[in-house]
Computed example of a mutant assay.
Amino acid sequence: MESLNLGGRGLTELDPDIRRHRGLRELYLHDNALTTLPEWLGDFPELRILDLSHQGITALPESIGRLGRLEFLYVSDLAITELPESLGDLGSLRYLGATDNGLEKLPAALGRLDALVELRLYGNRLTELPDGYGGLRALRELHLDGNPIERLPSTFEALTDLRVISLRANALTEFPVQLSRLPHLRQLDLRANRITALPDLAADAFPALEKLDLRWLDLDGVPAWVDALQQRGCLVYRTSAGTTQ
């Protein structure tokens, strides 16, 4: 057996007999009534996909870091307030979805996830990200909407493969200048932050940007580089004098 789908079964605990299927590549446990997870969850050396989302799980076991071939981890809409440091040992992880939880901080160890392509953390209580996350060199999408994040690390200028970053409804007070140097960034969403001024940037800032969303920012004005983006074909959304452009 390579795939086991136990999602939506109303489970309150896991049957230890599942351990017999050590060759599992996909394990779906979403939409149950689990609140705890056993340490033997880390005993599936071939596992590629693990879905634990949408239930009352209060903590992830440290043993999850033993899933060395895991590529996709779904832990959204749980009752967790932190992620285990052991997640940094998941060297094959390409996707991490930990949205709609109560996360207030993140383990620095996640900065070691060299294979991570997409990170979704929206709907949490994060105020900052560790500087080490600038080491996520394979990252292409970063979704952080609905957090009270006040600043981005300066190390984010090293995320040279980043294509999409969404920061809607955060608490940024300064425009993240470090993102303007990313060679492949295509979409930047800064809606509904506390930014009141845009910096002066060179006309060639954001060389690959296709969409910039500045709506619901209380801006004093718009500098020339924004017009230059539009002239290059970038879609720029902004609110001005009560209208959206």
Rank of each mutant, 00 (worst) to 15 (best):
Q55I: 06
D77R: 15
S76D: 11
S86L: 03
F156K: 01
I80K: 06
E157R: 11
I149T: 05
R94L: 13
G111I: 01
N124W: 04
L144N: 00
R137W: 12
F72Q: 15
L159S: 04
E118K: 08
N124Y: 03
L113G: 04
S76P: 05
G65Q: 04
R125M: 09
G97Q: 09
N147F: 03
D89F: 11
A138Q: 09
K105N: 14
A79I: 09
I149F: 04
I57D: 01
S63P: 03
L129K: 00
D114L: 14
T58C: 08
D145A: 12
E141I: 08
L144V: 07
Y133P: 01
A158S: 14
T99R: 15
R66M: 10
L144Y: 04
L119H: 01
S86G: 05
A98F: 02
L142M: 08
E104A: 15
L139W: 07
I149M: 07
I57L: 06
R137E: 14
N147S: 02
L139C: 05
G102N: 11
L73F: 03
G123R: 01
L152Y: 02
R112Y: 06
Y95F: 15
Y95N: 14
G88P: 00
G68A: 10
S154V: 13
S53P: 00
E71W: 08
S76K: 09
G123D: 05
P84H: 00
L152G: 01
A59N: 07
G56Q: 12
Y74M: 12
S53H: 08
T81Y: 09
L162I: 03
A115C: 10
T58A: 11
F72A: 14
V75W: 06
R66P: 10
D161Y: 10
P84S: 05
H143C: 12
T58Q: 09
G88W: 00
R120D: 15
D131C: 06
L73E: 03
D100C: 13
L136Y: 06
G65H: 01
D145E: 15
S154R: 15
Y95G: 12
I57A: 03
E104N: 14
L103S: 04
T58W: 08
R69V: 06
G65A: 04
L144T: 07
L78C: 04
L70T: 00
A108P: 04
R120M: 14
E71K: 11
G146I: 08
K105P: 09
L93W: 03
